[in-house]
Amino acid sequence: MLHIVNKSPLERNTLDSCLAAAQPGAAVLLIEDGVYAATRGNAAEGKLRAALARLEIYVLAPDLEARGMAQVLSDGVKPVDYAGFVDLVAKNRNCQSWL
């Protein structure tokens, strides 16, 4: 299953809700303001690092680049472009957008 998170972890609890529900082995894609969770030095970094042990975490690179954060992408988070976003949706059985 694919979980999509589009909120900054410092503005809303969306990422927490997603991580609490996501089952081991699930994929999480950070898009829009959600990409800030995947940057070094962010207060959510520890949370994300812990999640990496049991989840596949992806970030939408165009959103990361737009926000000037591409240079501080956290290790272990895989950047994808929109084509990669489409592939993630296609290869997972279903997806939930944590709006």
């Binding site: 589009n6 898009i31 829009e32 303001d33 165009p62 959103d63 472009d81 929109y82 084509a83 976003f85 489409v86 592939d87 949706v89 296609a90 709006l99």
Partner: peptide, 26 residues
């Protein structure tokens, strides 16, 4: 698509997703 244009990125993201999906033959 649950949000209007410009205020939220939702419509942009949806559009970019559609474009990429079509380009990939979906």
């Amino acid at each position: 698509v649950n949000e209007g244009p410009y205020t939220h990125e939702a419509s942009d993201s949806a559009y970019q997703f559609c474009k990429a999906a079509l380009a990939a033959g979906h």
